[in-house]
Simulated assay, not measured.
Amino acid sequence: MQVNNRKTKQRFLFPQDRIRALTFTLMVITFSSCHQNKFESEQALWAHIKKEENGYVHQKTVNNVSYTLTYRPTDILVKQELTDRYAIETVDSLRNKYGEYLYFNLSMSSNNQELLSNKIGNRNTFGTMVNQLAFGMTDKVHMYTKAKDTIPMADYVYPRMYGMSNGTSMLLVYPKDERLLEKDFFHFTIEDLGFSTGEVRFKVSTLPIKDQPKLNFKNLL
């Protein structure tokens, strides 16, 4: 009877091992399918970026002012600088160049208009905001590590649209500081720009940035 019991136990061990292996395989497949980070076109990459659940877009509305902060992957900057014909060595060089920094698009609108469009009636206020947007955003936008260390902005680009857009957008550039990415999140804040919003704060996860999506440049040749 004891021999029979051993055989019975052995008979059930094999299927259980197979079930565990199958479960693990399914988990890997599911994770891989949900975790695509290499894309065949710029359009496909942007579609991935714009899905909020992927962690690259952060939105908030305060006192009728809407803020959207979007991470801009390194390969988007690389693609913009490439000509129609390029070598993979050029891609590697540009990745090294742009990979030293983090890029974010910041879009702000009030009542679905540019911020300046809401200040046209007051010449002094309008002029002050023009200067602030063009030259003073380094004093208004801040990035802090989880330990509350300040990461200074390296540069920003503000293309004035003269009322031709429904939002005020700018590209913000920050150094890829190790202190910023060694933790699980950092803070991004925007001071009140004259719309009674108070400080607007975003909590940004570092995992999507560390595992940022890429373009398959070999297939784009």
Rank of each mutant, 00 (worst) to 15 (best):
P175H: 10
S165F: 08
N131W: 07
M153N: 02
L116V: 04
L171T: 04
A147H: 15
P175F: 11
T125C: 11
L172M: 05
G127A: 14
M164P: 12
Y86D: 01
Y98T: 00
N166K: 15
D155A: 12
L171M: 08
D184I: 12
Q113K: 15
L115D: 03
F185H: 15
D92P: 05
S93Q: 10
R123S: 13
L180D: 06
T150F: 10
L116W: 04
F104L: 00
F186Y: 11
N166M: 07
S107K: 14
Y71V: 00
F135S: 13
Y67I: 02
S109Q: 03
N122E: 05
V157A: 08
N105T: 04
Q113E: 14
P73R: 01
T128C: 14
V65R: 02
T128W: 15
T70L: 08
T150R: 12
E89M: 06
S66D: 09
L102M: 01
S117H: 13
T168M: 06
Y162D: 07
K148T: 13
N111C: 04
I76Y: 02
E89W: 11
S93L: 08
Y174N: 04
H142D: 08
Y158S: 08
L102Y: 01
L171K: 03
P152L: 12
E89P: 05
S107V: 01
V130Y: 10
L94P: 01
M170T: 05
D177A: 14
F135G: 11
D155Q: 15
D75M: 00
Q132T: 09
V157M: 09
D149P: 13
L94W: 02
M161E: 11
R123F: 12
E100V: 06
Y103G: 00
D149L: 15
G99C: 03
V78G: 00
M137N: 08
Y67M: 06
E114L: 04
S107E: 09
K146Q: 15
L77V: 00
T138A: 09
N112M: 09
S109I: 01
D177V: 05
I120L: 11
K119I: 08
D75A: 05
L94D: 01
V157D: 10
G121C: 09
D177G: 05
G121W: 07
L77R: 00
D75N: 09
D84V: 06
N105S: 09
M153S: 03
E178W: 14
F135R: 12
L115Q: 04
R179S: 12
Y103E: 02
N118P: 07
A154G: 07
K183D: 14
L171H: 06
T168V: 04
L133V: 07
F185E: 11
D92R: 11
K176W: 11
